[in-house]
Computed example of a mutant assay.
Amino acid sequence: MNLNRKGRGALVLALVVVVGMAFRVSWNALRDIANAVGADETAARLYPFVVDGLMALALVATLVLAGRDRTFALRVLGTYTAASLVLNYVHGLVPELHGRSVDWARLADWDPANWALVLLATSLPVGSIYFGSDLVAKVLHQRVTSIDRPNANAEESTETAINRSTVDLAESTPAPVAANPRELPRPVTVGFLKSALPLKPAPAIEPGPGDSIAPVAVAAESTRPRRATGRVPDAARSPRPKRSREQLLAEARSVTAEWPVEKLTAEGIRLAVHTSPKNARMLRETLRAERAAGDGAAA
C-alpha cells in the first residue's frame, strides 16, 4: 500500500511538471498574440492564464461533474484546447510576432483570416468569464446538493435494486391444494360417459292440447380435451394393482420376445411394460442375462 501511494504521488508530481513546462511554452506564444491584438504588457502576461487556465479548470470540472454538466465541461475543454492550438500555430507561422511587446501586427496576410484570428483572440477572455463562472457554479451546486442529500445515491441505488429484483422474480409456485378428506365421486368426462354407458332414448312426451313447450337451452358438446385445473384427489384416482416382480418379468418376456438384444434398454422396457425406471432397469438386466444364458446353451 505504501509503494502504491508513493507511485501515485510520483505520477502526479511528474504530471504537474510536464503541464507546467507545456504552459510555459504556450505562455510565450499567447503573450505575443495578446500584444499583437492590442493588449498592454500586463494584460499580455495574464492572457495565457485566461486561455490555458480555463482548460485546466474545465479538466477538473469533468472529474467532478456528471451527466450533461460533464458533457458541457468536455466541450469547453475541447473548444479552448483547439483555440490555444490555433493561436500557437499562428505564432509559429508569423515571425513578426516574436519578441513584440507593444507594437501591433497582423496575424495573417489575408484580411478575412486576419479578422477571424483577431476575433478568436479577443473573444477568448470573454468566453473564459462566462464558461468559467458557469463551470464553477455547476461544481458548487452539485457539491451543495450532495451535502444536503448525503444518502441520495444510496437510496436511488437501493430503489433500483428493489425494482429490478421485483421484476426479475420468477412466478411463485402455487401452494398445493390440500386433498378433501371426504370421498368424492370419480370424475368422468362427457366423451367417456357417452362411450362407456349406453344411453336409452327418453320417451317422447306428447304435449296436451293446452300445454306449450318452452325451448330448453342445451350445451353443445365440446370435442376439445378438458384441461386439468388442479391436483386430482387420491380418492378420485383410479386404483392400479401393484404387480409383483414375477408378473413384471413375465409381461416383459412376452412383450420383448422378438426384440433384439440391442433394443433391450431400460427406457424401452419402461414404456412397453408401464413401470418405474428402477423396475425397468431390473427387467433389462434379467432379460439380458437370460438371453446371454440361452445363447451360451445353444452354442
Rank of each mutant, 00 (worst) to 15 (best):
P203H: 06
D234Y: 09
I147P: 01
W110D: 14
R143H: 14
V218Q: 11
F131M: 00
A83R: 11
R270E: 14
D40K: 04
L30I: 13
T265D: 09
G20P: 09
V94F: 01
E262V: 13
V37I: 13
G38F: 07
L199R: 03
A44W: 04
D32N: 12
A61P: 12
L15N: 09
L249W: 05
G127W: 09
A34N: 00
P112N: 02
V18Q: 10
M21N: 14
A105W: 02
A56D: 06
A10H: 02
R143F: 13
P95F: 04
A178S: 07
R8G: 01
R182H: 12
E285C: 02
R24Q: 14
E183L: 10
P150I: 08
V261K: 04
V51G: 00
T166R: 11
D32T: 13
L117M: 08
Q142W: 04
R5E: 09
M21A: 15
T256Y: 03
R224A: 08
L54T: 07
R31G: 01
W259M: 05
A217E: 12
S146I: 11
V64C: 00
V232A: 05
L135R: 00
Y130V: 15
W259I: 06
F72H: 12
A43E: 05
V102C: 07
S172C: 10
V118T: 12
S276W: 11
P150V: 07
R284T: 15
V16E: 04
P150L: 00
E246F: 00
W110M: 01
D111R: 06
A105F: 02
Q142S: 07
R281P: 15
A280M: 14
L63Y: 10
L97C: 07
A22H: 08
S254W: 15
M55E: 00
D52G: 01
L197C: 03
S222T: 15
A196E: 08
P48H: 00
E262C: 01
G38Y: 07
R8E: 09
S128C: 06
R106Y: 11
L77S: 04
M1E: 05
V90H: 00
Q247S: 06
K278R: 14
L97G: 05
R70K: 14
A299N: 08
M1Y: 04
L117C: 06
V51P: 03
R31W: 08
A257L: 06
E41C: 01
I33T: 14
M282H: 03
A152E: 13
P215H: 04
Y47N: 02
I147Q: 01
A219M: 10
A39K: 09
Q247R: 06
A228L: 15
A250S: 03
E155I: 12
A82K: 11
L184T: 12
G92D: 12
W110N: 09
H91W: 15
G230A: 08
L135D: 01
T158P: 08
R281E: 15
G268S: 06
V90P: 06
A58L: 03
E221G: 03
W27I: 01
A161C: 03
P176G: 02
A299S: 08
R224V: 14
L135S: 00
T79F: 04
V216K: 12
S172L: 15
A220Q: 15
E221C: 03
V273Q: 08
S212H: 15
V261S: 05
V25N: 05
G208T: 15
V273N: 07
A108F: 10
R243M: 06
R224F: 06
V261F: 02
R253A: 07
P239T: 08
T145P: 00
A56E: 07
P260W: 00
L13H: 03
R143D: 13
